[in-house]
Design a binder for these strands. Structure first.
Lengths: 216, 216
DNA sequence: ATCATAGTGCGACTCTAGTTGCATTTGCGG
DNA sequence: CCGCAAATGCAACTAGAGTCGCACTATGAT
C-alpha cells in the first residue's frame, strides 16, 4: 500500500517543476514531507497541523503555507512522495489465491497497527476533507487497481475466467467488502472474512459475472 | 477544530432524560437539528460550523456548544433525529431483483443530487472526523444491514440460496463495490455497475459462497 | 401565584489557523 | 567571483473556533 518514507531519497515530487530545485529547497521539501508522514502516523489526519509540521521540520510555517497551501496539499504531496512505485500484485498461481492474498493485504495494510497503517487510514480520512487529497488518493488507487487487474488477465490466459472479463471489477468485488467493513460500516474484519469475499469474487468471475455484458 | 466529546456532550439531546424537556428547550432542539441538516445539505460536512447553525436556528452559539459539544455531537444528534425508522428492504420476488434494487438505492441515495444525498454523503465524511458520528453511523448502517439481510432469508426460504447463508455478507458483497467506487476509489457509478455487482453477489450466494463455513 | 433552578442569552476572552508585507538568505546563471 | 531573482525567515496581523463568567428567562413543582 503505502511504503515507509524514503528518507535519504530527495523526493522530486513537488520540486521538479520548480525553477530552483536544488539545495535548501530540496532539503526543506523532504524535511517537511517526512515530518508530515511522521505526524500522520502519530496523530492521524485530524491531528495534522501545519504549525506542528513546520516546527518539527524546522521550516517556517509561512513557507509551508506558501509551497503546499495547507494540510490538503501537504498530505497530497506526502502521498505521492511516499508512494511505492515498485509494488506488484501477488502471483500465487490461481485467481482465488491471488485475490485472497490481495484482500488480506488490504485488511492488514489498514489494521496491522504500524505507522504505515495509521498513514494509510489517514489518507482515506483525508480524502473526505480535501479535494487535493481525494485526487491524489484516486490516482493512487486507480493505479493499484490497474496493476491488480493483471491477476485477472493472467487467470484469463490460464482459462480460469471467460475472455473479456473486467479485471478491475473482479478486484473491486474482492476488496470492496473489506473497505466497507473498515471505513463505512466500521465493523471488524477477520482474515476469514477477507478470504471469503475474495473467494466469492473469484467464483463470480469464473462463472462469467464480470465478462463483457452482464449476462447473468 | 474538532474536539473530543467532553463528558456528557450529547446528554439532553434525547429529551426524555432531561429535567426540563418541554417548551423552549424542545423548540431549540428541533430548530438546531433542522438547521444542522439544512446546513449539511447546502455546504456539506466541511462547511458545517457551529456559528452558522447557531445563527440560522436563532439559538445562541454557547448554548449549542453546551448542549451538543460541537459539530461532532451536532451531527450525531441530527443523524438520529432524521433516521427513517420505517424503511424496509425491497421485495421484488427474487434475490437478484432485491439486491439489484438495493444497490441501485445506495448509488442513487448518494449521487441523486438532492439535499438527502448531500446529507448522506456528509454523514460518511463526518464518520472520519468524529467518533460520535462514527458510532452513530455504525449503529445506523448495522440496523440497515440487519433489515436487508431479510431479503436473503426470504430467498433461502424460497430455496434460492443454500440454508445457512450469511445474509449480511451477501448484502455487503452487493453494495460494498458501490460504496468503494463512491467513497474510496472516487470513481463514478452507473446503474449498470450497481446491477452487475448485485447480480454477482446473488450468483455467489446461490452457489453457496456465503453458506456457513467457506466451502470454496 | 410563587419559587428554585435548569437552561439560555450575552459578550468578552483565549487559542489556533492562515495571511501579508518586508528583509534576508541562497541557488543558479553569467 | 558577481548579481539577480526565487525561496525563505520573520513578525505582526485578521479571522474564526471554542470557552467562561454572569445575568436573565422560562419551566416544572409547590
Amino acid at each position: 500500500m503505502i511504503s515507509e518514507p524514503a528518507g535519504t531519497a530527495t523526493g522530486p515530487a513537488t520540486a521538479e517543476k520548480s525553477r530552483r530545485p536544488g539545495g535548501r529547497t530540496a532539503r526543506n521539501t523532504s524535511a517537511v514531507l517526512d515530518a508530515t508522514l511522521s505526524e500522520l502516523g502519530e496523530h492521524g489526519y485530524a491531528g495534522l497541523s501545519v504549525d506542528r509540521v513546520a516546527s518539527r521540520s524546522g521550516v517556517h510555517k509561512a513557507t509551508v503555507y506558501r509551497r503546499w497551501g495547507g494540510v490538503d496539499g501537504l498530505l497530497a504531496a506526502a502521498l505521492e512522495y511516499s508512494a511505492d512505485d515498485d509494488w506488484r500484485p501477488p502471483e500465487t498461481g490461481s485467481l482465488r489465491g491471488d485475490l485472497a492474498e490481495l484482500a488480506r493485504e488490504v485488511a492488514e495494510g489498514f489494521t496491522g497497527g504500524g505507522e504505515g497503517a495509521a498513514i494509510a487510514s489517514a489518507c482515506i480520512a483525508a480524502s473526505f476533507q480535501s479535494a487535493a487529497a481525494a485526487d491524489a488518493l484516486h490516482a493512487f488507487l486507480a493505479d493499484r487497481l490497474a496493476r491488480c487487474a493483471a491477476v485477472v488477465g493472467a487467470a484469463e490466459s490460464r482459462g480460469e475466467v471467460p475472455p473479456g472479463t473486467d479485471g478491475a471489477d473482479v478486484v473491486r468485488a474482492a476488496i470492496a467488502p473489506v473497505y466497507y467493513r473498515l471505513f463505512i460500516g466500521r465493523e471488524p474484519v477477520s482474515a476469514e472474512d477477507a478470504a471469503r469475499y475474495a473467494h466469492a469474487a473469484a467464483d463470480s468471475a469464473r462463472s462469467g459475472a464480470f465478462a463483457g455484458t452482464d449476462r447473468g
